[in-house]
Design a protein around this nucleic acid. Structure first.
Lengths: 162, 162
DNA sequence: GCTTTTACCGACCCCGTTGGTAGGATTTCC
DNA sequence: GGAAATCCTACCAACGGGGTCGGTAAAAGC
């Protein structure tokens, strides 16, 4: 599998926040219940989003999380990167130090020369394909998609206080 | 990481076979030495390629493996699929029984209705991006790429018998 | 027919990551 | 002060990845 459950849960969490009024805190508990996800685990997930500056939070009673920017300005490559770390087709596409993706992908020959290994071309294309699809999708699109679905099902964004 | 070392090794193995004369067996040992890969592990990798009908083999002395079809007719989605199994962005994109990718990605609501979860749109796009890049790359391209590189480095395809 | 070379097969094993849980500390609102 | 929330760290079981090992079967050369 390409993405772990962290990506799945994190994206769903972001969508849920995108459905809310801006700048109004939503508690993790409400989101966990709405999405049927384990609260304690969601805490770890949302921590990554916070470190990446994608969400803001308020502690204490009536606290919670909200989007740091409008959903239109959040592209999914940033979200996924925050949740999964740099995504790359292969190990060697990662520079340990910078966590940035760059392709060395060489191996030494007997003559001591460096040579691009044959798979480089393929992994570059795959990586390009993924990056493009993530960069061209905004959180706002997913929120809109989600709204259409839930209107059809007659579901509220988050269980409102009864 | 998206692909495991099986994909990496397997692709390199296929490229190495693509560099050989057609229908002439090349031993795994030669390939393992040329690519500096563990022979015992390569055996497992090549077994997958064989099961998928991508390579053929002959046992005994002077035996080995060769491509079942010309490299021009082998697209990399088939190769990667053989090595890694069906690739999907998320667990739930896989049908257990068929190993074919199909997206149910629903979850039940309180009302008992099914609803596409919000991430579906995103994963679909990612999957499309990957599939396209794999389908539009042929083994022949990688072989050509590899030849250009090794000409520059003055390297032989596989160590010839001395 | 024996040896060598190869493909083929299955069991095993170490280790890092995943997907959590547990328990607490701290902050804020009422 | 108590309830509701975020925050933080440690821990843990299970799984998959990346191999190794040992052995068997077949084909070629002598």
């Amino acid at each position: 599998m390409i993405f772990s459950s962290k990506a799945e849960y994190g994206v769903r969490l972001m969508v849920e926040l995108g459905r809310q009024l801006p700048d109004q805190p939503t508690s993790l508990k409400a989101i966990a219940e709405a999405e049927r996800l384990p609260l304690a685990y969601l805490e770890q997930v949302v921590a990554r989003l916070k470190r990446a500056g994608l969400v803001m939070s308020a502690r204490g009673a009536h606290g919670g999380y909200w989007l740091a920017r409008p959903a239109e300005e959040i592209t999914m490559d940033v979200v996924v990167q925050a949740l999964e770390g740099a995504i790359a087709p292969m190990e060697c596409f990662l520079s340990e130090t910078t966590e940035r993706v760059l392709c060395s992908h060489m191996h030494a020959t007997e003559a001591g020369q460096n040579q691009h290994c044959a798979t480089k071309l393929l992994w570059m294309r795959v990586q390009g394909g993924i990056a493009r699809s993530l960069q061209t999708t905004t959180l706002a699109e997913l929120v809109e998609f989600s709204r259409r679905e839930s209107v059809a099902a007659g579901r509220e964004p988050v269980a409102p206080a009864a």
